[in-house]
Nucleic acid binder design. Structure first.
Length: 478
DNA sequence: TTTTGAGTTGTTCGA
DNA sequence: GTCGAACAACTCAAA
């Protein structure tokens, strides 16, 4: 009989369309998940990520057990724990989906080396993306820096394979080693910290079954109106598949074949593009891709940052988004753009501070997407928004939330204002405020900055950047 | 090498 | 109230 294999789950917590799982081909297997939240060289999982991970691992463990083998839970550094485990069970191969974060690539390289030293193999599969990010290049062999040609190249060159079926049973080890207990990892909010996860529990169903259900629900529901409806933050207008994709509870290939609407598929391609950028520019999460922006005159200010984080800027659309994020771990994409733009341009806070907050609070926290999107908003990324494009949170609110339904849901203190004032409460006459029970500065803050003045300040700051280098993606000194 | 066309998501101002 | 231009020219990718 052939030797057993180690099936190393990372961010592909599913059984269907899992190429590492399919590569077992009936061999004995030990599935393992390794939590590395202590290494200093990586972005440790944020609070919302930890909550989701707990539930997703619970579901994956149950699904694997039903097929014939438990899921082993371990903690530690991959380059030590994985080779040791392979050695302990006599596995000659470790199978896993490929990861693309800089630290993960480095860790995989070390795992590969350590395994090779004892004649074992690490086999990595394309699992969380449609296509390997390093296998797309321009005609000149360079990485793409603009989305549209990148997406055209992917569409022209890549055949998206049909998803693989889930196995109907697995052959586990007769005596699998004992792992750790999920509860001991303390991934959920623990006393004395208040239970902030109630809104997450009410909103989400982590795990493969929840992911597949969410995808099917979108394909038969909101997808038909997605091209127009996706900009409306209130109501079920998007797929809300992002956290499931981030944890790999459903694969992008599955999503591609089920959710066929072109504008939605383009969002999947944006995800590919973010990973393409991260692959070629591993500094993406830390530093602006456009070198001139390294000298941008940010004005770090904890008071402003906290007001933004808590949804107390005085601009209803921004505040509603930030409170939706805090309560549910998710924010509608249109509102993300407005809220992010507000932090960076109106408040002149470094985009990295916004990215950190999103990383901690988003259930769909994804290093490539989050970093690329913040750089896009800040104007220092690939294909970034021109610097003069400053969202007006009032106009955005009135355009995409005209009846104020979204703002009222997340800011109940403004719920009784009339539609015409709900996005600009500071302009409300005293009698309207009184009738709605709003006391500005008490029940809801006055605007933390004046829009027109803040906009001009941002334009001036961007205009002062060195012109020649302001747009360049590459550092010419390199 | 040079040229050409295109480039996710806006806002404001003035006619 | 509506509409077009200005915003700032630039970079990227392909022919």
């Amino acid at each position: 009989m052939s030797s057993p294999a180690l099936l190393w789950f990372r961010n592909d917590l599913r059984l269907a369309d899992n190429p590492a799982l399919a590569a077992l081909e009936g061999r004995q297997v030990l599935p393992v998940f390794l939590l590395d939240d202590a290494s200093p060289d990586r972005w440790a999982p944020g609070g919302a990520t930890r909550w989701w991970l707990h539930h997703s691992l619970q579901r994956l463990g149950a699904a694997l057990a039903a097929l014939g083998t438990p899921l082993l839970l371990l903690r530690g550094r991959a380059e030590i724990a994985i080779p040791a485990l392979a050695d302990a069970i006599g596995a000659t191969e470790v199978l896993a989906g490929r990861r693309y974060e800089p630290w993960a690539r480095e860790a995989d390289r070390r795992v590969h080396e350590a395994l090779a030293a004892s004649d074992r193999k690490l086999r990595l599969f394309t699992s969380t993306l449609l296509h390997e990010p390093h296998r797309i290049a321009t005609g000149a062999g360079r990485p793409y820096g603009v989305f549209t040609p990148f997406s055209k190249a992917v569409l022209a060159q890549v055949e998206i394979p049909a998803p693989l079926p889930a196995p109907s049973r697995l052959l586990g080890l007769a005596h699998p080693p004992a792992g750790e207990a999920l509860a001991d990892w303390r991934l959920l909010p623990q006393p004395p910290v208040p239970d902030w996860a109630a809104g997450l529990r009410a909103t989400w169903h982590p795990g493969e079954a929840g992911a597949v259900a969410r995808l099917a629900r979108f394909a038969t529901g909101a997808m038909a109106g997605y091209a127009k409806g996706r900009d409306t933050p209130e109501g079920e207008t998007t797929s809300a598949l992002s956290p499931h994709l981030a944890f790999g509870e459903v694969s992008p290939r599955q999503a591609w074949h089920v959710a066929t609407a072109e504008p939605w598929r383009r969002q999947l391609l944006w995800r590919e593009f973010s990973y393409h950028l991260l692959w070629h520019r591993p500094e993406l999460p830390e530093r602006p891709l456009r070198p001139a922006y390294a000298d941008f005159p940010w004005r770090p200010d904890d008071r402003l940052l906290h007001a933004w984080q808590q949804g107390r800027t005085g601009y209803p659309l921004v505040d509603a988004g930030m409170r939706q994020l805090w309560r549910t771990g998710w924010m509608h994409n249109r509102v993300r753009m407005v809220a992010a733009s507000f932090l960076v341009k109106h408040l002149l806070q470094p985009w990295q501070d916004g990215a950190s907050w999103f990383w901690d609070t988003l259930v769909d926290a994804d290093l490539a997407n989050n970093s690329a999107s913040w750089q896009w908003v800040a104007g220092c990324g690939s294909d970034a928004a021109p610097y003069f494009r400053v969202f007006n949170p009032v106009l955005q609110g009135e355009k995409f939330d005209p009846a104020g339904a979204y703002v009222r849901r997340w800011l109940p203190e403004l719920a009784r204002l009339p539609d015409s004032l709900v996005h600009r409460p500071w302009e409300a006459p005293a009698e309207d405020l009184a009738r709605a029970g709003v006391r500005l500065g008490e029940t809801y803050p006055r605007p933390i900055v004046d829009h027109a003045a803040a906009r001009q300040r941002a334009l001036d700051a961007f205009a002062a950047l060195p012109k020649s280098a302001a747009g360049a993606l590459e550092d010419n000194a390199a």
